[in-house]
Every structure is written in C-alpha cells, then in structure tokens.
C-alpha cells in the first residue's frame, strides 16, 4: 500500500513538472522580443490548471493553408491564406497518441528483449569473442543516432532499386503508416547501450564467489549463465530503464520528421495552447512512466519469488 502511495506521489510530481515545463515559453516570450516575467509564467500555469480541470474545454489548433482564386477578370494568380481552426482535442488526438505510444512501447520491449538475449548469447562465447563484442558495442555506441537512420533508409531504398523488393516502408504515406523501420531504427542505439551495460555488469558479476562455487560444483556454463548470472545483473540493468526511455523518446522526435510519421511531435511543435501541450505530454509520459515502473516491479517480484 505504501508503495502505491509513493508511486502515486511520484506520478503527481511528474504531472506537475510537465505542467511547469509546458508553461515555460510564456516566461520568456513577451509581446515583442524577450521579456522575463514570472507573473506571466504564473498566470500561464494557473490557466493550464484551470483548463485541465475540465478536459472538454481543451482545444487543438489546426493550421491550414487555403488556396483562393480571385474572380476571373481581376486576376489569374491565386493566393494562399493561412487559417487557424480550433477543434476539441479529445476524440481527435487518440489515434495519433496511440500510434506514437505504440511505436515507443514496442521499441522499448524490443530493446530489453534484444539486449538481454544478446547478452546471454555473448556470455556463452569464449572470452576472446566476448572482449571483441564489448569493443564493437563500445564503438557502435559512440556513433550518433542519425547515422543509423540515414544508413537504414539508404539501404532499404538501395535494395529496392536493385531487386525491386521493398522490405519495409521507409516513409509514411497517407495510406499506410510505416511501423517496422521506425521501430528498428528507434531500438538500435538503446539496444547497443543496454547490451554493453549487460556485458560490463556480468564481467564484474562473474568474478564473484558464488559463481566460482557453482563452477567448482561442476555446473555447466550455460546453467550458470541462465540461472545465476542473468538474475543478478538484470536488477542492476533496470536502474537504467528511465534513461533508455528518454533515449527512445528523444530519438522519436527526429524520427518523426525523418520518416514523415504522423505522430504526436508535429502537433506538439505547432502552435498550440499550453494546456493542450501539457495534456499531450502527459498522455505520452504516463504510459512510459508506467512501463518503466511496471518492469522494475516485475523484476523485483521475480527476484523475491526466486529467493523464497
């Protein structure tokens, strides 16, 4: 029960910090140019809170550019007029939020499974290969995420050009959203990070006495790895899960542009009221928070039930 209250408290604090963050632009932006004003910031936070209390009042600004043709005898050229519509937020954004969350959570699961699996496999290799794997993962981890994105996009298109085989949809079109490639590119960098961490952790773990004891009893290497090593490294790995989440989310921001995804970031970055931004951020952040906490809890439970 105490745990639940503690988590709820954390969730509440997360919620308030998101509201504070979403209101930051009003702290800086004056009517013309920069004007620092705490008063305006406070007003904006209060306004956000008021809007949050009745969610039906939340609105979404839709920016559209309409082509207008002047009557024929006057002018043959046409002009574009920018217009902003205001529509209620709620039934409108669910699809987009769910799509973004789906990508993030799928890649989160993929990252953990992939890194832990590869970590297991690497443990079974002879030591020289293990060191090579560590070196390679250290090198790959140092590369920027954009590098992978460009390489994957180029490779897919190159294969398509050569063989006519389109492995996956490299850009979202209006008809079909691309899912496979964004998930793969999202998970590469965090998976390498987690994999390297797993290798480093098990390197220190494998020197401990209980492993030596298990060896001297004549247990096989694979038995030791699966039954002892993993269970003890994975709880330390779970400390890094929030960082993995952050990595995924911040990569999602650029992937959405590079893959032309129809996701939440483009709405967040267009001109929107602070309350709407806060709500959208919360809709994304809560499931991520829940996923991180849930997996941590699951690992802890497993460990306790194993120990008992």
């Amino acid at each position: 029960m105490r745990k639940v209250i503690l988590n709820l408290q954390q969730l509440f604090l997360l919620c308030s910090s998101i509201i504070l963050i979403a209101a930051v632009p009003s702290f800086l932006a004056g009517d013309d140019g920069i004007e620092f004003s705490l008063l305006r910031y406070g007003e904006s936070v209060a306004g956000t809170l008021k809007n949050l209390l009745n969610p039906d009042s939340l609105t979404l600004y839709i920016h559209s550019q309409n082509m207008i043709l002047e009557p024929m005898p006057v002018n043959l050229s046409y002009e574009f007029v920018n217009e902003i519509y205001e529509i209620p937020l709620f039934p409108e954004v669910w699809d987009i939020v769910i799509y973004t969350l789906f990508l993030l959570l799928i890649s989160f699961a993929a990252v953990i499974i992939l890194a832990v699996m590869l970590g297991w496999c690497a443990e079974l290799l002879p030591p020289s290969y293990k060191r090579a794997a560590l070196r390679i993962s250290e090198f790959l981890e140092a590369l920027p995420d954009l590098f992978f994105v460009f390489c994957i996009q180029l490779a897919v298109v190159w294969i398509y050009k050569k063989t006519g085989f389109l492995a996956a949809n490299p850009f979202t079109s209006s008809r079909e959203p691309s899912i496979l490639l964004p998930v793969i590119t999202l998970s590469i960098v965090p998976a390498i990070y987690l994999f390297r961490l797993q290798l480093v952790l098990s390197q220190t773990e494998i020197e401990k006495d209980y492993i030596t004891f298990a060896r001297s009893k004549g247990l096989s290497n694979s038995h030791i790895v699966f039954h002892h090593l993993i269970k003890n490294t994975i709880s330390e790995l779970s400390i890094h899960l929030p960082f993995i989440m952050l990595l995924l989310f911040s990569q999602m921001i650029i992937l959405e542009y590079l893959f032309n995804l129809n996701g939440i970031i483009q709405i967040l970055l267009s001109e929107q009221p602070a309350a709407t931004r806060a709500v959208l951020l919360m809709l994304i952040a809560f499931p991520l928070f829940a996923a991180v906490k849930g997996i941590k809890l699951f690992i802890k439970k497993e460990r306790i039930s194993n120990a008992a």
């Binding site: 408290q9 954390q10 930051v24 800086l28 932006a29 989440m245 952050l246 970031i265 970055l269």
Partner: peptide
Amino acid sequence: WVSGLLQGFQFVPQSLIVLFVLSPL
C-alpha cells in the same frame, strides 16, 4: 519532492523543451 519534480526532465527530452521555448521566438 525535488527529485520528483525533476522527473519531468527524465520523461520529456531536452530537445522538445528547447523547441517549445525557441520556436515561437
């Protein structure tokens, strides 16, 4: 409570915050 408030930076990427603040300016 401070570390709880700083959680916002754990779940909202810095690039997003910077874009929020700077893009209207």
